[in-house]
Lab assay of single mutants.
Amino acid sequence: GLTEEQKQEIREAFDLFDTDGSGTIDAKELKVAMRALGFEPKKEEIKKMISEIDKDGSGTIDFEEFLTMMTA
């Protein structure tokens, strides 16, 4: 499992990506986040990433899903 410290770091990354503070990361926010990390993702790639992570089919990534992605 994760230490509380690791969870906190992932939470901070999540909050950075969640620019509108909605508690979820949408495609637009993910794209901005990827760019910040030096990637140039295409729209299809973003969609694919979200569909792989987005277990509940909401079209957005919540913290639990993000946590799973970061620790996979």
Rank of each mutant, 00 (worst) to 15 (best):
F66E: 00
I25A: 00
G38A: 03
L2Y: 08
T19N: 07
M34F: 15
D54R: 06
S58C: 10
G21K: 08
A33T: 03
R35L: 15
T68A: 14
I53Y: 14
I10W: 07
G23Y: 02
T19K: 12
G59S: 09
E12N: 13
S51K: 05
E44K: 05
R11S: 02
K42R: 08
E5P: 04
F63P: 00
G59V: 03
E5M: 09
P41D: 04
T24V: 06
E44S: 10
G57I: 07
D26R: 08
S51G: 11
F39V: 07
I46E: 03
M70Y: 06
K28H: 11
K47P: 04
I10D: 00
M34A: 02
G59D: 07
E64Q: 08
K47C: 15
D15M: 12
K55D: 04
F63S: 01
E29A: 11
G59R: 12
G38Y: 03
K48W: 11
F66G: 00
A27P: 07
R11M: 04
G21V: 02
D26W: 07
D54P: 04
M34Y: 05
D20L: 05
L67C: 08
P41A: 09
D26Y: 11
T60C: 12
E4M: 10
F17V: 15
G57N: 08
K28N: 12
D15S: 10
I61V: 05
E64H: 11
T68P: 00
T71C: 12
F14L: 03
F14E: 00
L2K: 04
L37F: 05
E44D: 10
S22V: 03
I10G: 01
M69T: 03
G23N: 03
E40R: 10
I53K: 07
K31F: 14
D62N: 15
T24I: 04
P41L: 14
L2W: 12
E65S: 14
A36Q: 11
R35V: 11
I61E: 00
L2F: 10
E5V: 10
F39T: 02
S22I: 01
I50V: 10
D15N: 13
G1I: 11
S51C: 12
T19S: 11
R11E: 01
D15E: 07
K42I: 08
S22D: 06
T24H: 10
S51D: 12
L67I: 07
K31H: 13
E52F: 13
T24K: 07
R35W: 09
I25M: 05
I25E: 02
T19M: 11
G23D: 01
A13F: 10
D20E: 05
G23E: 02
K47V: 11
A27E: 05
D62R: 15
Q8N: 09
S22L: 03
A72N: 10
D18K: 03
G1W: 14
M34V: 03
T60L: 09
L30T: 01
I50N: 03
R35D: 08
K42C: 15
T19I: 13
E29F: 13
K7Y: 12
K7H: 06
V32M: 15
F14G: 00
S51M: 09
L30R: 00
I10T: 01
M34G: 00
S51Y: 05
F39K: 05
R35F: 09
M34N: 01
K48G: 06
K48A: 14
S51T: 05
I50H: 02
R11I: 02
E12D: 11
E12Q: 09
I10L: 12
E52G: 09
K7E: 04
Q8W: 12
A33C: 12
Q6D: 06
E12T: 10
D62M: 07
A72H: 13
D20H: 05
S51W: 09
I61P: 00
G1A: 08
E65Y: 12
G1K: 09
D20R: 06
K47Q: 14
A36K: 09
F66L: 02
L37C: 15
I61W: 04
I50G: 01
S58R: 11
K31R: 14
G59F: 08
A27G: 05
F63C: 02
E64L: 11
E29C: 15
F14M: 01
F17R: 02
I61C: 02
G57H: 10
K28G: 05
I61R: 00
L2T: 04
R11H: 04
T19W: 11
E4I: 08
V32P: 08
F39M: 04
R35Y: 10
M34I: 07
F17L: 09
E5R: 09
T71V: 11
E45Q: 06
F14N: 00
R11A: 02
K47I: 13
E40A: 06
G1H: 14
T71Y: 09
E5H: 12
F63I: 04
I61M: 04
T19A: 07
I50K: 01
D62E: 05
R35H: 13
F63E: 00
A72W: 13
D54H: 10
I50E: 04
D54N: 08
K55V: 06
T24D: 04
G23K: 04
R35C: 15
E65Q: 15
V32W: 15
T24Q: 06
I53A: 09
R11P: 00
K48S: 06
L16W: 09
I10S: 01
S51A: 14
K47N: 09
I10K: 01
E5T: 11
A72F: 11
M69C: 11
I25T: 01
L67Y: 05
G21P: 00
L67W: 06
M49Y: 11
K7I: 11
F66W: 07
D18M: 05
I53F: 14
K47S: 13
T71Q: 10
T68K: 11
P41G: 07
E52L: 13
K47F: 10
A13K: 10
D54A: 12
E9G: 10
E64I: 08
S22H: 04
T19L: 13
E5D: 08
G21T: 03
V32T: 14
E12G: 10
D20V: 04
D20G: 05
I50T: 05
M69H: 04
T24M: 08
T68R: 11
K31C: 15
K47T: 10
I50Y: 07
F66M: 01
G57D: 07
K48E: 03
M49K: 04
I53V: 11
G59C: 09
K28E: 10
K55L: 08
E45Y: 10
E5S: 11
E52Y: 13
F14W: 06
A13D: 01
D18A: 04
M49F: 10
Q6F: 13
T71A: 11
Q8M: 08
M49S: 01
F66K: 00
R11D: 01
D62A: 14
E65F: 11
E29R: 08
G38H: 03
E40S: 12
T68G: 09
K42M: 12
M49A: 04
G23H: 01
T60F: 03
K42G: 13
M70K: 00
E4A: 13
T68V: 14
A27T: 13
M70T: 02
V32C: 15
G23W: 02
D26P: 13
G21H: 12
E40G: 05
L16M: 09
I53T: 04
S58Y: 07
A27Q: 06
L37D: 02
A33K: 02
E40T: 11
E9I: 13
I53G: 06
G23A: 03
G38M: 03
G38I: 02
I25K: 00
M69R: 03
D62I: 03
D62Q: 06
A36P: 02
F39R: 04
Q6H: 11
K48T: 06
F66V: 02
T19Q: 07
M34K: 01
E4P: 14
K48Q: 12
I50P: 02
F17S: 08
T68F: 10
K31P: 15
E65I: 09
A27K: 10
